[in-house]
Nucleic acid binder design. Structure first.
Lengths: 194, 194, 194, 194
DNA sequence: GATGAATGAGACTTCATTCAT
DNA sequence: TATGAATGAAGTCTCATTCAT
């Protein structure tokens, strides 16, 4: 399995750095190879083509993401708490790896439709985690029964994503993680007084 | 003023069609010219360069967007109603012009960072409209006083945007406009029972 | 005769200014038209094509050049004196019209082979003036009988031309005309002590 | 060092041939690549851009030129002899490589101002060789002490250059090298009887 | 005579991918 | 396994010239 060889991860990590530093359109295969300390041709021993590198970047990082999420969520009892730790950890992981944040929020979105479709496939697993929390909340009578799960998930993901993107665009100059409680509250309670 | 000449709009409209049908990276100037029924060189009598076409597409369409929004919002009394018509009209406009929806939600996001920065400039005006509604709601004691306006706006925009994008990715096969009330309710009330 | 209409000269003069200020390759027909205060299309009522403008520039200016030369030369008795006033006037005319100097010494030489061949045709008349002086000098026993007229003319023209070009490249920052006597002496006496 | 790899010289030589045969403005990169027997892209492994090819052509050939000159000049005792062998060799080198003659005398002069400035830098070394001979001649009391070195150099270079250009324009149909003694005599003795 | 909007051909350069070593 | 030199397709933009008004 190529996935487990050292050069595989070496190239993935090089890709994140090169894309973050140079932007998606300036991340040539030769630059990634140089950053990874291998020859251009070596890339093709581990990846089908350039697109495969980018998908693998997302796959690899998102895999860790979802795994981590499931872990922290399982430790909490209520749906509200689960949602909070999910938001917190989403913010934490991207705060810790600024390059990854730039790559996922800005650069990878410049890829073509086809690549983005494949990225969305990977994303789905994360979206399912959100759906699970929502169902769980409804079952426990924490969340409204009549909300449309898909819409609620779009609200949650859209809000989190927009928040992170705004933070990245503003060059990460404020603390993202500390926004988690307010975002959490907003998602739970909405804007209205009631 | 070139902006008012018929060929200007002709080219803008051609660009939307070509980008929607072929994707951002396959929208060559020659294709746009052909679609617009003009010579390649004519494009450059009306636009500085290819990027200028794309910015102008966004500018032109978003200009209409914001104008329309301000109009329908002004007609409503409460902040809640204003928010509802904003969501409705956002969905309506993109539902009516499916090509535009594809272009704004998927294709234009593939542009490089520089172009996206310029697009963001245009977007800001729309975001201000959202801020205005939020402030207005707080003044009228419709909305919670302690919510962070920026976060709330990110929730609103993020949710709307994510909803439209999901709809476009699913090839627009369900009715977007009819989702407006549910999205509106979610944004106002959140997920929780309270 | 178009040559005598005011717009003809207007365009010629505009061409000299535009070429001097922008360089040969940046002297577009539209710029010349603008400088001349006419529409692009009007150019083509007076000139066949762009090349025709450039040849005409040279023709028109060189016509004056040769005329002036013949005039001042006729006033002198000896071949040596004739040569001196020729050099002096060559330097004077180009010193007075700095734009023309730039155009003839630097810019017009960037034209293609074909155009330069045509320019050379125009130049020939000037070269004949030099030949005439040389023959006259040999007849009067002022000049060596055994020199090859063509080579001598190449020396005279080459030296004058190289001197003017060096002066233009050095941004005309010293007085060209005052070099005339030294150049004259060099051409007459050569470098050697004898 | 790319300069020493075989393809580097291969491309330089191809450029000389293509420019001589097609003219400066018709010397497309693709033609040069074809003539050199490499792919278009290969050109860019050895040269920054098209201009770089042209500068390199001049640099490479002129380097040989100056080297050769210094060599033959060193072998002669008197300034007059040095001048003679310089003229002879200038004529010889260009006579032997007719394509190079066309390129240096006609085609490369069509380049833009910027490129010509860079070419002039390379030329300066050759002009210094002339200056050295002139100084040497003055020290040895072979040449007049009161001549202006720069003017004299302009005479020498202007004459040689004009002679070669005339020969190239006349399609090289007479023997250039045999003109060397007469040119030499002219430069030394001038036109006058004394 | 005068205008100026429209035309459309043409070339430099990049970079993902290959393959002989 | 690993290398890296070589490949070659493909697109933006300029500008001389035309011609309907």
């Amino acid at each position: 399995m190529k996935r487990n060889k050292p050069k595989y991860k070496q190239i993935i990590d090089a890709a994140v750095i090169v894309i973050a530093e140079n932007g998606y359109h300036q991340a040539q295969v030769s630059k990634i190879a140089k950053q990874a300390g291998v020859a251009d041709g070596t890339i093709y021993l581990y990846f089908e083509n350039k697109e495969d590198i980018l998908i693998s970047v997302f796959h690899e990082k998102m895999g860790y993401f979802v795994e981590k999420m499931k872990e922290v969520i399982a430790e909490k009892e209520t749906a509200a708490e689960k949602l909070l730790v999910m938001i917190e950890n989403h913010f934490k992981i991207l705060s810790k790896d600024r390059n990854l944040a730039i790559v996922t929020q800005l650069e990878l979105r410049q890829s073509n439709k086809e690549l983005r479709m494949k990225i969305n496939e990977v994303l789905k697993e994360y979206l399912h985690v959100m759906d699970d929390i929502l169902h769980y909340g409804q079952e426990r009578d924490e969340f409204l029964k009549d909300i449309d799960i898909r819409l609620a998930r779009q609200m949650i993901f859209g809000t989190i994503d927009e928040t992170v993107t705004t933070w990245v665009i503003n060059e990460q100059k404020y603390d993202l993680v500390s926004l988690a409680p307010a975002v959490h509250k907003l998602l739970l309670r909405g804007c209205a007084l009631r």
